[in-house]
Each structure stands twice: as structure tokens, then as C-alpha cells.
């Protein structure tokens, strides 16, 4: 059964990694942490399930694309309206403002979609695949595949395309990038939109596993942030490793130590890392500039 526990932890860890990746991108280009990321996830799940799938009756793929587009638009809008103004502020101001926006988003989801949890059945079914001993649901496998694909895609785009170069240039020195003709504001909005799409993906992947509720994203958002700290603040490979590690360790911890204190285990792990290895597992060179 331990294999089972690890496999489930791995799937959750992949979700944390997606969210953590969103944090890392935004941190790298804007040096702000978006504490509303979990609520972006919640909101995306609602749009996907309630609006596109249930109300409009669209098939899975078009719902997915439309949700991604809607969240990208919301992300870009939020970035221009709110985030851009937080640039020169102290970290404190940005934290409180994004927490406030998260509450707003969560409450809006409740006002628009009502208090009932929404059930979403994955089009891929909830069959179990037997891998000689332990079982993995199709959905869990899908999560892992999607996360691996996203990780690979973002790596190659960032490494080899012009978009990647532009983003890295903006991250390194915004003023110089602007002087070189890079549309800095568009890049920042684009980065934020990308992180919103990552949250949307996480929400869509989680919808069949969880029920869609207004609370579904809050804890995932926090754990994603913990994952980024463990992996290394702003470090892209760190976010992935940290996410997966957190997912596995908290599940194994709940199994081996205490299920009652499962969340406490995740947060204690955070404290240990902050004291013993504050720069994270795979530190980004320009770590916390706050």
C-alpha cells in the first residue's frame, strides 16, 4: 500500500508543482508573490465546469481551451490593473493586496455559482490502471502526463524561442529590456496570463478528483507556495522538485506518522527548510530580492 500512497502523493505533488511554477514565473519577472493563485485555480474550475461544460454543454477540449483563454484574459487584466501598480511597493503591500483579491475572487465564485459543490465526471472516466501491485486512476495518470508535458514545453520555449529570451531579458533588467525595444508591460501581462493558465490547468485537472467548491483552491495555493520555497524561491526546476517532494512527503507522513497532523507535517517541513536550507533545494541565483 505504500506504493499507492506514494503514487497519490505524486499526483498531488504534480498539482503543487503546476501552481508553484506559476509562482516562480511571476516572481522572476515581477518579484511579487500572487497570494490569490489558489483562488485563480478555484475560479478556473468553476468556469470550466459550471459555465463551459454544464451551462453551454461544450465538449472537453473546447471547454479547456476557452477556460485557458478566459483565465489568461483575467490574469492579464489583473496584472495590468493591480499587479503592475504593486511593483514599487513593499512586499507587505503586495501580499495583503493579493490576499484581498483572492477573497474577492472566491466570494465572486460563490455569488455567481452558488454554494453547492459541483460534480464533474472526467471524460476519461475514473477507471483504475493496474501497474503490477499499485493502482493509478486515469485522472492521476493524466495529471502526471500533463505536468510533464507542460514542464518540457516551458523548458524548450524558454530555452530556445524568442519569447523565452524576451522573458529572461525582462526578468534580468527591466529598464534595459525596455530600452532594447521589448514591450515590457506586455511581457509582464503575458507572464501573469501564463501563470493564470497554469492555475487553470491545475483547476481543470483537479475538478474530477475534488468536487468544485469555493474552498478547493485555497490550500492548494498555499501548498504550491510552500513547494516553491522548498524548491528554491523563483527557481523553475526547484518549483517542480519542491512540488512533487511536498506531495509525496505529506502523504507518506500522513501514512507513517499521523493523518490528523497531515497539514502540520507539510508546514513543519516548510519551517525546517526555512531554518536549515532557506535558499531551497535548487536555489535561483537571484533569490528573494524582497
Amino acid at each position: 500500500m505504500l506504493g499507492q500512497v506514494i503514487a497519490s502523493g505524486l499526483a498531488m505533488g504534480c498539482i503543487y508543482a503546476l501552481v508553484a511554477l506559476g509562482y516562480a514565473y511571476v516572481w522572476n519577472t515581477m518579484a511579487i508573490v500572487n497570494f490569490a493563485a489558489g483562488e485563480f485555480l478555484t475560479f478556473a474550475a468553476y468556469i470550466f465546469v459550471a459555465t463551459f461544460t454544464m451551462s453551454l454543454g461544450l465538449p472537453f477540449w473546447s471547454s479547456l481551451l476557452l477556460t485557458a483563454a478566459a483565465m489568461a484574459a483575467l490574469g492579464a487584466l489583473f496584472s495590468r490593473l493591480v499587479f503592475a501598480r504593486l511593483q514599487r511597493q513593499r512586499a507587505l503591500v503586495a501580499i495583503i493586496a493579493t490576499v484581498g483579491f483572492g477573497i474577492f475572487l472566491k466570494e465572486m465564485a460563490r455569488i455567481i455559482y452558488g454554494p453547492e459543490p459541483l460534480l464533474y465526471v472526467s471524460p476519461f472516466g475514473d477507471d483504475m490502471l493496474d501497474f503490477g501491485g499499485f493502482r493509478l486512476s486515469v485522472q492521476q495518470l493524466l495529471i502526471m502526463v500533463v505536468v510533464v508535458v507542460v514542464m518540457a514545453a516551458q523548458y524548450f520555449v524558454l530555452r530556445y524561442s524568442m519569447i523565452g529570451k524576451i522573458m529572461r531579458a525582462t526578468a534580468l533588467d527591466r529598464e534595459t529590456a525596455a530600452l532594447m525595444g521589448i514591450p515590457v508591460n506586455a511581457v509582464l501581462a503575458g507572464t501573469f496570463a501564463f501563470s493564470a493558465v497554469l492555475a487553470a490547468l491545475a483547476g481543470i485537472l483537479l475538478a474530477p478528483l475534488f468536487y468544485v467548491t469555493t474552498e478547493m483552491g485555497s490550500l492548494v495555493g498555499l501548498k504550491g507556495f510552500v513547494a516553491m520555497i522548498i524548491g528554491g524561491f523563483g527557481s523553475v526546476p526547484g518549483a517542480i522538485v519542491g512540488g512533487v517532494l511536498l506531495g509525496v512527503i505529506e502523504n507518506v507522513g500522513a501514512f507513517a506518522i499521523s493523518s490528523t497532523y497531515k497539514d502540520a507535517i507539510a508546514f513543519t517541513m516548510l519551517l525546517v527548510f526555512l531554518v536549515v536550507r532557506p535558499e531551497g533545494l535548487i536555489p535561483e541565483r537571484s533569490a528573494d530580492r524582497a
Binding site: 478528483l209 507518506v252 500522513a254 490528523t260 497531515k262 497539514d263
Partner: peptide, 20 residues
């Protein structure tokens, strides 16, 4: 005797303990 937190959605660890 196992428990889960109100926000947990993955119960594999607890179920595994119950099975064991």
C-alpha cells in the same frame, strides 16, 4: 482511528493505514 482535515481531498494515506 484515522482522521482527515476538512480541506483534504486525497485520502490514500488514511485508506492505506486502514487497510494495513
Amino acid at each position: 482511528v484515522e482522521s482527515h482535515n476538512p480541506n483534504d481531498k486525497d485520502y490514500s494515506a488514511q485508506l492505506a493505514k486502514l487497510k494495513n
